[in-house]
């Protein structure tokens, strides 16, 4: 549905994206996972035609470059930076952006009600945005991306800086949208979100795509072994194993155990293995 081919983008001395190629399939939730400054937002910026790549190309299937008006009408973007008119109400913001995307009046009223309900802002629809909490603003930022009901969504760190309740709300929304067949590109530096939501994940660091695949495949390929940590007879042991269940059973049957913990490999382990650094470094 969206093909990024050998994208390269430099800002002065900083090479933000370095030869990145990706193909997003229709109907999938694709996660772009990487630490802050990895090049995720720059990649999204080029994908939506906001930034012009120094090299490479972006193509929306059947339409062409994302700078084309027809391509933009099919994209819904929630930028990482909140992009809302704070002096206007949620309803006014949504109506304004809906009109920009050419949604006709009757359809707009319908969509307005639907997205406000989806993001849980129906009761506050007429309040000015500047009075909203951070989480409410994030949800409205997402709602604006949805107002024209686009088939493809690009969500750039949609949970940045929100409280756990709003985060869960947003994650549920993304899952619902995916269930309705929307294609979603989701950037995050939270590996838990990528693991929960994404069909496939691309791991990006220093502008380069390091690995690409399903969470399961990535963990199997790069995550290493599970670690069973056990405390017995006052001694702490750390055992690496491919089968933590069997190892745990063995340890428990061997004698008295004061404490035991299993650490399975995850996307954090994958990133550590690929870069030698933690995602949160």
């Amino acid at each position: 549905m969206l093909r990024l081919t050998n994208l390269r983008k430099r800002f002065g001395d900083i090479l933000a994206v370095d030869g990145l190629s990706l193909e997003i399939r229709a109907g999938e939730v694709f996660g772009l996972l990487g630490p802050n400054g990895a090049g995720k937002s720059t990649t999204i910026g080029m994908a939506v035609g906001l930034l012009t790549p120094d090299e490479g190309a972006v193509e929306l299937a059947g339409i062409g470059a994302p700078t084309l008006v027809q391509a933009r009408a099919r994209l819904g973007v929630a930028p990482q930076t909140l992009s809302l008119y704070e002096e206007l109400s949620a309803e006014e913001n949504l109506r304004f952006f809906g009109r920009l995307y050419g949604v006709d009046s009757s359809r707009l009223t319908e969509r307005l009600a639907a997205v406000l309900d989806m993001v849980g802002l129906t009761a506050r629809r007429r309040d000015r945005v500047k009075g909203y909490s951070g989480g409410m603003k994030r949800r409205l930022n997402l709602a604006v991306a949805l107002i024209h009901d686009p088939p493809m969504l690009l969500l750039d760190e949609p949970t940045a800086g929100v409280d756990p309740q709003s985060r869960n709300n947003i994650l549920d929304m993304v899952r619902d949208l995916a269930a309705k067949g929307r294609t979603i590109i989701y950037t995050t530096h939270y590996m838990e979100e990528a693991a929960r939501l994404c069909d496939r994940v691309g791991i990006i660091d220093k502008g380069r795509l390091l690995a690409l695949g399903t969470v399961h495949d990535l963990v199997n390929a790069h995550g290493g072994k599970s670690v069973v940590s056990v405390q017995r007879n006052g001694v702490h042991e750390r055992i690496e194993t491919d089968d933590p269940a069997r190892e745990t059973a063995r340890l428990l049957s061997a004698g008295e155990v004061q404490g035991i913990r299993i650490d399975r490999p995850d996307l954090e382990s994958v990133f550590l293995s690929l870069t030698g650094r933690s995602l949160r470094d």
């Binding site: 939506v48 035609g49 906001l50 008006v69 027809q70 933009r72 009408a73 994209l75 973007v77 930028p79 930076t81 909140l82 992009s83 809302l84 008119y85 704070e86 952006f97 920009l100 995307y101 050419g102 604006v144």
Partner: peptide, 14 residues
């Protein structure tokens, strides 16, 4: 500065 210009730029408008 508020980012709304980005949204306008990404809308199907020249």
């Amino acid at each position: 500065a508020r980012g709304t210009l980005v949204r306008l730029t990404m809308a199907p408008l020249s």
